[in-house]
């Protein structure tokens, strides 16, 4: 009984557990919902960045993940893009 009390105090109200689990599972669900989503984002990012820099397209990595929100440490979905830049383009006149 004591053990259970300690356990419940440590994990907090069960709704917080539910919320965290739900948020994580939805990150997955939401990406699975549209398989082309990341490809589309990737293509558009390449288009935009290419105006300013030469990038290594083979090394480009985009994924949907979760990260801690600054203010309250709750997990939120985040789009993380890792874009290796070969060199900046000459943008004279801008």
């Amino acid at each position: 009984m004591d053990f259970l009390k300690i356990f419940s105090r440590n994990s907090g109200p069960s709704k917080n557990v539910a919320k965290e689990r739900l948020k994580l599972v939805l990150v997955h669900d939401r990406t699975n919902c549209s398989p082309h989503f990341l490809d589309m984002v990737k293509g558009d990012i390449i288009k935009v960045i290419s105006d300013y820099a030469e990038i290594d397209e083979s090394g480009l990595d985009i994924k949907l993940t979760k990260t801690k929100r600054d203010e309250d440490d709750t997990m939120v979905p985040a789009l993380v893009a890792n874009i290796p830049i070969k060199k900046m383009k000459d943008r004279k006149g801008i």
Partner: peptide, 15 residues
């Protein structure tokens, strides 16, 4: 909801 064992309205709308 009151004792924290059920997600409340704000939790659900937030998600």
């Amino acid at each position: 909801v009151k004792r924290g064992d059920m997600m409340d309205i704000d939790d659900i709308i937030d998600i």
